[in-house]
Design a protein around this nucleic acid. Structure first.
Length: 180
DNA sequence: CCTAATCTTATCAGGCGCGGCCTGATAAGCCCATTAGG
């Protein structure tokens, strides 16, 4: 409040991805899974995604947010309880099957893919959802990979200026044109 | 208001090639990150 929310709010639509709306049934499955397994590996997330007909990246995000909001019990506590009552063969979570793929395969970007990404990054280190999707299509990888790539890149290049979350996209555009 | 989407930062881990670097993937966020859409 007391913000200039009324003055300039053309607010470029689609800067953010459209908000996902999970159905009751989907939520039930997600919550049930979470209660048994708050840290599902990649294979499990994919299976879940298929089961409730959504994308793996949405599942991944949902679990991240859920863990942040419902800190069930921390890993340390899990570890401690494991050590004190040595439970043979029982890992943290029952369904963390060793043979299952836990991490997503590391993406190996080709030279040309990297070239495209770097060029886009120079142009705008904070691409909106449409831009990321276009990039993803151009280089033939999922959008979530593009997002991860930008996050890592910003972090490692120490992109400054957005300490407090991102700035208004309009300001960003203005900033860009001013600079050159 | 609730919560999905986004962000930064720190850390794990695969690939390359043989010690340690580069970088993609993952998790936390602390008086429990911030922002914003329905």
């Amino acid at each position: 409040m007391a913000q200039d929310s009324s003055s300039n709010r053309p607010m470029p639509e689609n800067y953010r991805r459209d908000r996902t709306k999970f159905t009751k049934e989907q939520l039930k499955i997600l919550i049930d899974t979470f209660n048994q397994m708050p840290y599902p590996g990649y294979a499990t997330r994919r299976r879940l995604a298929l089961e409730i007909n959504t994308e793996e990246s949405r599942i991944h995000l949902w679990f991240n947010n859920r863990r942040a909001r419902y800190p069930f019990r921390k890993r340390e506590e899990q570890k401690e309880s494991l050590e004190s009552s040595q439970d043979p063969g029982q890992d943290h979570f029952p369904e963390q099957i060793p043979s299952e793929q836990v991490r997503q395969c590391r993406t190996i970007y080709s030279r040309s893919q990297l070239h495209t990404l770097i060029k886009a990054f120079r142009n705008n280190p904070y691409p909106g959802i449409h831009c990321r999707e276009q990039l993803a299509e151009d280089i033939g990888v999922p959008e979530s990979k593009v997002q991860t790539w930008f996050q890592n890149r910003r972090s490692r290049l120490g992109v400054q200026g957005k300490k407090k979350y991102r700035m208004n996209p309009l300001d960003k555009a203005r900033d860009k044109t001013k600079k050159k």
